[in-house]
Write a protein that binds this DNA or RNA. Structure first.
Lengths: 224, 224
DNA sequence: ACTGGTTATTTTGTCGACAATTTGGCTATT
DNA sequence: AATAGCCAAATTGTCGACAAAATAACCAGT
């Protein structure tokens, strides 16, 4: 099992773990509508677990800002707003910029070699016209750099918190968009900077990369 | 009630809220030792609430990285390590830098006026030789700028998560340190940049400010 | 005395029941 | 008809009990 997989596949051992992951999936992928109320008893029967388990799952979703809860009233899935998406991308710009800086400092040469390999594989796909790239490939690229930062707090913030919310926006607002080839070039330059151990440039390029991505998404939001 | 206070005094309505806040306080301030085990039944009698309430409180502490839990084994207060502190400061540098940038863009002129007022008040204290400054004053300064970012996700990340952990290190490793006057000058320049709506400079100065603070703390860690 | 396996004990995870709070609807009064 | 107050239904919050898992203690065999 690769390093990435161990981090991503949070091995769910308890019933609350599984319910949390399932519920998050159902919300992120839109099976449960954004903004809708989460009734504990209802979910309890739906997922065939006790209400305690549902409560714990909901509480965890509250912690990653996917659900909001008012005391004695109940929990609702967050609403997807343009402002919320912008907030997320500002944080991504900040944190992933720092991640790239730290990756340039802390990645092993083996990890950098692997990253170059990933880039080469993506290049083949892009050349072959597969638009498969952007979903899995882009995510994989960013994950490796974040892991390369070796900052566990940073890794957890992005993986456990931000990324699920970003994916929720992506899926539900249909942001499967293009920007494939230009994004590839940006990735290439970032990897070059990391290979050169140029922390300053790596951070700057990553920030630009995410800023462009945000601009791209904002345009789509407006056109809707 | 000022804007800051509404954000800081999380009004605890349920019993789980109060227990969470109390437990966090006891951990952050060292009443409960770092690295120690958190027995649910034990805490249940200690705080005179049911075990469900304790469980919920612990789960929330897990979400803000103050406690770690292993399934079917139990929860422990995190250990305080130099690496952990560095991780935190790297994140602060990144996020608060972005906060300063956004504050330069989004703070109202009234808020900027207030911020200048705060600075003036601190100057009087520093001049008067009160070292009171650095604890409350420094925190107040940073809080206002973070709030000034108007990015709720960012605000929550720092207030609900990072800052309690930072305070835990500060309190338990006795980082009440000096650096008062130099920090004041740094604050002054940051406020100037924000007043000029110079986003770029505000971010850069804030990052430097936090970097210096980190260097200062690291030196103390070594000398111990 | 030491190691391996087995049983007890303790601790966590889950469930259903009860208490407290909110919400919606009803009645009465103006 | 509108509003205020009150009551009923539903939902959340908390508790204690039971189930499952891990740790500790114990015993047997070498």
């Amino acid at each position: 099992m690769t390093r990435i997989e161990t981090f991503l596949s949070e091995q769910a051992v308890t019933s609350a773990d599984k319910t949390f992951i399932q519920l998050r999936k159902d919300i992120v992928e839109g099976q449960i509508q954004a903004g809708s109320k989460l009734s504990e008893t209802e979910l309890s029967t739906k997922y065939a677990v006790g209400r305690s388990v549902i409560r714990e799952a909901i509480n965890r979703l509250v912690s990653c800002h996917i659900v909001e809860r008012k005391a004695n009233v109940g929990a609702r899935v967050v609403a997807l707003t343009p402002e919320g998406l912008i907030d997320l991308y500002q944080i991504r710009e900040s944190l992933e910029g720092m991640a790239a800086r730290l990756a340039a400092k802390n990645m092993t040469s083996q990890e950098i070699t692997d990253l170059n390999g990933l880039l080469a594989a993506h290049f083949q796909e892009v050349k072959g016209g597969e638009s498969y790239y952007q979903e899995a490939g882009d995510v994989d690229f960013h994950y490796r750099i974040i892991l390369g930062s070796k900052n566990n707090q940073l890794i957890s913030l992005l993986f456990d918190g931000i990324y699920h919310l970003v994916r929720m926006y992506r899926v539900q607002l249909g942001m499967a968009g293009p920007r494939v080839t230009s994004a590839f070039d940006e990735h290439k330059h970032i990897v070059q900077a990391i290979s050169n151990r140029d922390e300053e440039l790596a951070e700057m390029l990553m920030r630009r990369h995410i800023l462009y991505s945000r601009n791209n998404i904002e345009q789509k939001l407006i056109s809707n």
